[in-house]
Design a protein around this nucleic acid. Structure first.
Lengths: 343, 343
DNA sequence: CCAGTCATTCAAACCGCTTTGGATTTCATC
DNA sequence: GATGAAATCCAAAGCGGTTTGAATGACTGG
């Protein structure tokens, strides 16, 4: 069933039928009713390729993600996608995801632009020395950054959590509890967000005249073993920390495992604060959440990023906008006062 | 830059240019060279909407996932997607993901078919009383099932792990170690895979004349707290288990946490076997993996499912094919002989 | 009664590509 | 030198929509 057939059945022109279906005013209500009714009855829906060709709009948003696993194809990305996807489908947009060989990433973006595969893209996981935004500007593809590109804050649209402040507050909480030997298990520090978190941590320490101990700062992909192995290593080391500040629930769970294996108790002997992206399969809820955390829903970020982007596409030429969100600091069971004397 | 402009620059017809670019034989090598060269120089790439309209092929595969979180928008799904995505892009296909309100799921499939949004879809997480395949047959949309639809095994194409056998083997391993009180922490049992796993478990017990204790079988979304809370509950119960069989690494980590909190040691006091989907952010590797597990790469399953589907699309009318994979049984640190006497 | 509006509807062009069905040229063959 | 096959190339017709520009009819006001 296509437009031609439908219009023949109705003894109307394709023009009128198309307009009736798309809500144009120059169609009498009577005809519009007839048309929509018949369309429903015959199960007509416009061929999206044809429509896209005619309108010149792809009605799709692209997400290109390099094949390699680092920091990208992880649960956090998934949750973001879920949020963005909801917004897209509410607005009739498709979400197209390209998993590409790392070397072909740039190529993928160019393809999207020249082949008109999508009307815009979202940049995930900006690095400290980010470059994708330049390419996208060059090829004129609208985009929104999930995170922030250092040095390009005013010229790009982005949505980010205040990473620095979150980790500063978390650090202060630990400091207030009397902890002075605090370990930082951070994400890969070539990523912008991880740098900011580290800065927040260091600032908080510095404000109390403390310096971060390089031995207690580790950075890697935020896996569970990363948390466990490093915590184990530190706890068995010469001058162990009494608290851990962790960049991800997943790694925090690893830390908790290590603490348990050392015969210590989380929240008593060792305090843990983690950032919690509010992943659906890692609920950290309950009356008193398991982990004390800084929380910020990444799914919500996805929704907002999508809204931002769709807005840019609908109103080209508007100024870049940014959304800077604060994380909640939530007290759970994993923190407590620093143990007094040395063991 | 479109085909028309390109052909004018070359003083050739659109036909010839199109053919040259698409590798048709009726073009002299000389012209083909000229064309490809000029195309590269001017950065020409065909508009994908136009091509799709002309060829009638969407060159895209759809994945529709209901908005609700259950069992679907989880890391396992993500990893599957990553695998499938690789295959798609290698074959020039796009992956389009629709996140839809649960009630609109059927509608989403219909839209894909009538609007020609995709050439095929993949069904995720088949339930015990699955129905989507009927709809898809009715509307004539090619599909592959990730998992299996009970009763429709021969009439659908699918890829699945041998869940029953995996859990049977895992159970036998525990039984061989002397465990008789074994707990099962399973996924939601309206899902086909979870039922099969349970069957495997029960079969193994039955073969030794044992019956499963209903108190020791729990089923829910495979979150970390699900593992922890239930393990805690059982361990503090009257007749605690000495071993756990768990459906997911995530929940297994929760179980390990509970074991630790009870002052017990994993692999000594309590044994754990989990299914391991080989998620990238939860590596369970090392010389001796942390968890004894049944392992099957879900990313690989994604690749294969995509291949299957693309094949079906390229060769319509071929018989449905299925891929049944066995999981590896890998001995890690989390299992040991059953503690002899009662505590 | 007629020009002028407004409300409807339509024929045809267009979006950018693929593909059908020739047309033209080349060249060995008879 | 005519002939047929092979090698190239092309004009034009789709694909299935949207949109422009104009036509038609009904209605208003002078």
């Amino acid at each position: 069933m296509n437009l031609k057939e439908l219009s023949q059945r109705l003894e109307l022109s394709q023009t009128t039928v198309s307009r009736a279906l798309n809500g144009y005013p120059e169609v009498s209500e009577e005809t519009r009713r007839r048309v929509t009714e018949m369309a429903a009855r015959l199960g007509y829906a416009p061929n999206s390729q044809a429509r896209r060709l005619a309108t010149g709009r792809a009605m799709a948003i692209g997400h290109v993600i390099p094949r390699s696993i680092h920091e990208m194809m992880n649960p956090i990305f998934l949750e973001f996608i879920a949020g963005a996807g909801e917004t897209y489908s509410m607005h009739g947009y498709d979400m197209i995801i390209s998993v590409v060989e790392d070397a072909l990433e740039e190529d993928a973006y160019r393809q999207i632009a020249t082949r008109k595969k999508a009307d815009g893209v979202i940049i995930h996981g900006p690095a400290h020395d980010e470059h994708r935004h330049k390419l996208l500007k060059e090829i004129g593809l609208p985009f929104v950054v999930h995170g922030r590109i250092p040095g390009a804050e005013t010229e790009t649209s982005w949505i980010d959590m205040n990473n620095r402040r979150a980790f500063e507050r978390a650090s202060n909480l630990l400091l207030d509890l009397g902890h002075t030997r605090i370990a930082l298990l951070n994400g890969l520090e070539h990523m912008d967000f991880a740098r900011r978190r580290r800065t927040g941590f260091e600032n908080a320490l510095a404000a109390r005249g403390l310096a971060a101990d390089p031995q207690l700062m580790r950075s890697a992909d935020m896996t569970e073993p990363f948390g466990c192995d490093n915590a184990m290593d530190m706890l068995n080391g010469g001058n162990p920390p009494t608290a851990f500040l962790v960049s991800s629930m997943i790694s925090a769970i690893g830390v908790a495992r290590a603490v348990g294996q050392c015969g210590l108790t989380v929240g008593k002997d060792i305090s843990i604060i983690t950032h919690d992206d509010a992943l659906s399969f890692l609920p950290n809820s309950g009356e008193v959440p398991i982990f004390t955390c800084t929380r910020s829903s990444v799914r919500y970020a996805g929704q907002k990023a999508a809204e931002l982007l769709l807005n840019m596409i609908a109103n080209p030429g508007t100024e870049p906008t940014a959304l800077h969100m604060d994380a909640e600091l939530i007290i759970g069971q994993s923190t407590g006062p620093a143990p007094s004397g040395p063991a």
